[in-house]
Design a protein around this nucleic acid. Sequence first.
DNA 1: ATTAGGG
DNA 2: CCCTAAT
Length: 687
Amino acid sequence: MVTKKRLGHGFNGFRVPFVPRRPRSARRIGPSKKSVEEGQTCAFELLASLAGKLLEESEGSASSNASEANHVPPLSQGVNEQDRQNEVKPLIAEGISAESIFMPDVASQNSTKKSLQHAKTDCAPGRNSVNDNSDCWEKVKANVKSEVLEWENKFERYSNNYSNKLVEAPENLRGSSDGNVKNGLRCEHKAGSSGSQRSNMAEKCSLKDQLELYNSPALIDSNGNVKSPYCRESFPSASFSNRGNDIRLGFRDDGENFLSCNEVCTKSKGFRSPQRFAPQRIRKQLFSKYWKAGPKLKECELSRSDVELKPLYHKRKASYGFETSLHKTLVKRGKFFDRASGVTSDGGFSSESVSNSPEKGIDRDNPNSSSKLHLPKDSHVAFSIKSLRIPELYIEVPETATVGSLKRAIMEEVMAILEDSVHVGVLLQGEKVQDDNRTLVQTGLSCKENLDTLSFMLEPSSLLASPAVCVGDPSSQCETSQPTRSLETAAIESGNTDTLHDSSLLTNPGNIIESNHDITTSPADSIVDKITPDSKALVVVPTSPEALAVVPVTPKTKRAEFVQRRTRRPFSVTEVEALVQAVEELGTGRWRDVKLRAFENADHRTYVDLKDKWKTLVHTARISPQQRRGEPVPQELLDRVLAAHGYWSQHQAKQNGKHQAMPGTLKISEASVERPSVECVQSLVMV
DNA sequence: ATTAGGG
DNA sequence: CCCTAAT
């Protein structure tokens, strides 16, 4: 019995640090890939390690920045609004809000982390830039997004903590600026800092729950408390109520009802695509597919397969990209923006070029630069985002599943969403703000007015939006990113030759000829281990339109366009040998058995593949040697192919009864040292 | 899920 | 290899 748990719209049971994810490629999988859900080493682990590295990198700067320590106060300590305000104020006063977001500085792109921490949003009205006011919206989104990214970098450290995030954005055309507390929305005015020449008012708006990204039924524990953040270890304790077989999770319904709900929910189904992994498996699966005949892992207790969790052929590729996706994304975006102004549709960063003013550049390069003092300082609206809501989650696990497995299941769902290149959507009064070029004020997003109806949400990368990024500057992102196809190819060409794993592919070692021995001595695992460390080198950030397409807005149509063929993997002589052997014994109509007998561990060879190969083998055997291409197949094998083909053609009718091996098969194969005589073949054909 | 065949 | 119809 499988229990389905609908977590409702905007499930945001836990506050999640954002984690970008490699795109999930949509691809059908061959029958032999029944173990799709197997060997999936956690995206999470990768994530963790990644985060760890980033953390290390940033350790220096982080520690040197005292304010950093206060960045994320422990949730458990119940930091109140006032505390948060107090924390932020001084920073703002310095004109450098630790909580602020900004654009990566072109000059300091090298340090991804650093740029994230020290760049500062510049969306001042009255700028000379041609883009005046035109990209503020983008910036707001960008800010939110980068905040989320920052979260990602720190989630390890703060996995058990939580605090509001303060995203600061220029208010731009904001009308008034009174500091009212409105429906939990706190707007605070303070004297402009650091030489603001014009509007000295800076507003700090702590959008509390109202700013949660998305409609949010929250996971609550038995005490009714919204449980914390990350799920890795401190997964929120859901309150279970077992109604018969229907296990439900407790929710908190804020009663919020965004109009876009339906829209997003629909989408969620799209990006809740077929591919969701058990965190622990990606790595395993990843390599087992190509470098070895991976042992079947039975640890997957969740019946994800029951959840239309079709194993996808390209999962490994996606995985490859995963580890470095964040890194590259950050770096490359910086590069991208260096040329293209504005912010990407996916909420990237604003570029230096947005402002052609050298002064600005300097200013951002060095926040403490005196030049900063001469720059017009605008009022800013600081958004304190308490949490990011995650769109609908749909979990399905057997009712016999353990709580732990449920957690993992949810984890998968969350990761599936977060690992994608999500965008930040802005909802105002329930309606999605479509025009990214409008300023905050134009949009009516002033602290005073509509902030209480403002909310952000994470949304899947838009298939339509992404390509646009490339249109503007094909040489940037598009250039560096490559179709997933490349990943696959790269992986294979990097030393992963067929001969490398031929031996391990075949189920029956006995079928392997001596020529393989040297290879056989190398355990598949060692191969994997050896390759793993360098695998990163093969990683290509799949940010191309194709890659992003795996999160189709329109599931069927769009996805189909990007389905790609499997990489071609010519059969080696060894494989042919095994195939011939099996067919000789089993006949030509039992490809599944052939598969099981000789290629069970060769996941990339489906029974259809074997059938096809046999077809071509027969054809090859019939044509003249001159017409043959590819790795030459020993004539001896081709002879056996013809013999077997002829034999089984004759005995097709009898297949139903006893599956009798082809007469003389054993003898021939056993005596394979001696090439079967033409007479022998003839006789067999005659039979 | 398999098998058989055409593309 | 892919795609499909038919089992």
